[in-house]
Write a protein that binds this DNA or RNA. Sequence first.
RNA 1: GGGCGGUUAGCUCAGCGGUAGAGCAUCUCGUUUACACCGAGAGGGUCGGCGGUUCGAGACCGUCACCGCCCACCA
Length: 947
Amino acid sequence: MLEKTYEPGAVEDRIAKAWVEADAFKAGAGAKPGAEPFTIVIPPPNVTGSLHIGHALNNTIQDILVRYNRMLGKDVLWQPGTDHAGIATQMIVERQLMERQLPSRREMGREKFLERVWEWKAESGGTIINQLKRLGASADWSRERFTMDEGLSDAVRKVFIELWKKGLIYRAKRLVNWHPVLETAISDLEVENIEVAGKMWHLSYPIENSTDNIVVATTRPETMLGDVAVAVHPDDPRYQALIGKYAVLPLIGRRIPIIADEYADPELGSGAVKITPAHDFNDFEVGQRHNLRPINVFTPSAHINASVPREYRGLDRFEARKKVLEDLEALGAVLWVEDKKIMVPHDEKTKQVVIEPFLTDQWFVNAEVLARPATEAVRAGRTKFVPQSWENTYFAWMENIKPWCISRQLWWGHQIPAWFGPRLSTDPEFGKLDAGPKIFVAETEAEAKKDAAAYYGRQVEVHTSGLGSTRFQKALADFEQIQRDRLNPTVWASRKAADPFAEMADSKVPLHRDEDVLDTWFSSALWPFSTLGWPANTPEVKRYYPTDVLVTGFDIIFFWVARMMMMGLEFMGKEPFHTVYVHALVRDEHGQKMSKTRGNVIDPLKLVDEYGADATRFTLAAMAAQGRDMRLAMSRVEGYRNFVTKLWNAARFLEMNGCVREASFDPHKLALPVNRWIVGATAKAVAEVAGKIEEYKFNEAANAAYDFVWGTYCDWYLELAKPVLTGDDAAEAAETRATAAFVLDQILKLLHPFMPFVTEELWGETGKTGPARENLLVLSAWPELAGLGDAGATAEMEWLIAAINGIRSVRTEMNVPAAAKIPLLIVGAGEETGIRVESQLQALMRLARLDKVDYGSDVPAGSAQIVLGEATFVLPLAGIIDIDAERVRLKREVAKEEVEMGKIEKKLANAQFVAKAPPEVIEEQRQRLADATTRRDKLLAALARLS
RNA sequence: GGGCGGUUAGCUCAGCGGUAGAGCAUCUCGUUUACACCGAGAGGGUCGGCGGUUCGAGACCGUCACCGCCCACCA
């Protein structure tokens, strides 16, 4: 017995367990023999994360695709897992240390700290996975992966090394976006430019040996400490005489050249621009063009460093700005200050920390080379974006792609498999400025040592990170010094004289592993194949790569999708998926992006608690229109919760009426029109829903299912079935019971991808009677109903529905009490109407609440009349209805028809229309005109009969 | 400064070349063999403005207005 109401809380847990026990989500579960694979990799949520509404949408869509394809009998793999999320995770654990007043990250050291992060991961890393399970996500949880798993780490190392060997990874001293609080490089994509009310200071720099000045402007005056030039446009007539001369940098006294560079825009400000290569991306390029050595004035925490006069050292960048301005003011070098809205780069996550361009040694991927095939794959249509408009975004970014800085100065992540050592004097780079250390990239330390030993021709000693990089730097410098000394016999002789061990000093080479880790997205980029076991040639790699669909939000097209495309093509030779479905962003009711800092987050788990996972999922699916963000309204969730209840009650109705499935049931052999009609309508709904899912139009699929179940099956079929079930024809009743049960089965399948819990529960409950179920619903086959449908039965039922609607409408308008049963007189009925009335008499009487139906030719005075085909349905309501009201009603109906007729007549009178419109459209219009005219005439006749 | 998207019923949103839709809200009715998380009925829109294409335009094109997002180095 079904409970009176559906209680999602209790049921969902039980159903979830049943699925797990049946291994229903395992790769290949329910697959037909010889089935083709269908693969989706989950966008791995941050291991630190908890489920937000975007995850809920993202995973609901994936689950709909996965469950649907599983029911089609494909060999389905939904590969789940989590991402180690370098920065976010490290920050969480660091915050935890602080809160518990434990030693800080640096105090405890790298090894201890990482142990702690792993502990934390073991404790809380499963949170989001459990939350996904609560949503009903049917991923193969037995295959859960983590981006820092051993296997995935192998893949990362392998890819790094291969790209290094191909020259697609390199190390360079470049300006990067630097996070001065975290003290690491961050991605361009993690920087958000925020407009703030700022100021622009116009500064005057004196010209050397002259009384002249040159005026420059800046929004960041503290950077002037690192100025190395002033640039003017080569054609700017105002400055021709100054090009090649020197300005004297105030406060510092440095002579800086006045250079000609087209970067300077004569239209802007004074036309002269200060050049600070270490602290501005444009200036860096100018500096390179003119061979200017950048002067970095910041420490990693954006305090002033030792390269400037003592009084500024140690100041925070904003304090330094103040002091620099004060001092410049004192010199009279500040000409004027302008209020200005300026774009300031902020850390995207907190939007608090101002990001600095900072000169550091970093690792880069030559993204330009990798982007070419990745762009081509989309151009050629081998990978398609849905909606397609996102392809433009993808192209725009890919075609302007910049080197990808992949190193991060963090501890939590994949440590870069590179070891640094000194250069030998025989090395062509030896002694060159900025040559950097000798780099050994290798799988393991042992291999790095082997390579190093080969290079140096002697043993090497690996300095562990515990040694600290300062000591290593010294060892490195000492080694190189000896190298240098050896090159000069005189120097070497005196050195040997001073130091008896000099000869031995470089017998051991100091080698040190790079302490940096890789950008989290580096490992995410490999996700579609690393999760399948690559670089090992596993059966899964062969079977499930390339995957089918990637379901994601647009915010990570650059971060992730583009990079998976690059890595997939480079290492697997095939694009990682044929379709990228880009879903909407879920916004709050005001259209704002949901975020913790805004405090406008709708917690999907609360929705699940309150309304059930099915209602939550269905809402998200129903609102997932392509190409548009969704604003989530609670009323929608409630409405779809009601839909779940409606389905539940329909099943209860069947149960109460003994509507049990029959093994021998054949939907092709039904006697009653109502049953023939509903199986046809079911087939149509199934085809519609399937088609919409395959087009990724989840909202239309959900709505089609909803309309069919509520609007057709519940509102009409079950109501029409009632008189048959209680009627005295046992055969008809039996057929109807079996049909009702059969259609419910199809409905459960149809809705299962959207509402897995309640449908599985009902599948189980309805399976307790009738033929035994072979499988859980999750593993059952998608309905095969092609070919069902009966035009005659459909026409008859549509006629019946129109008749009932017509009578109901009149009853309400004429204020006939709902409880009152009234007679119906049919006038002018032809043969077809007669047959239909006979066939549907019971249904008509019950649903229209009639007490008898007669045929006649006269219309009694004071009757309400409804035109239906060739017949007029007369409700003799003398004394009950208000004649004037009925006259008004009929006139309104006449007017409606005449408006319609007018429109069509105008169209048909238009020679252009008749000449150019397709014949079927013209025919349709003619038919509509004829119909409207008939209805109008009958209504006029009815009106005439009234008086 | 570029690019993208939006503007349709009171609210949240579908529809994107041939009869304006849904959910919620509103109004009326409701002794009915499931369901009041329900049933029946009703009201409510010149589809942002203007121009154009077309036999025909919420729908296609142009333009304007407002809203939102993404990208971008104005010192």
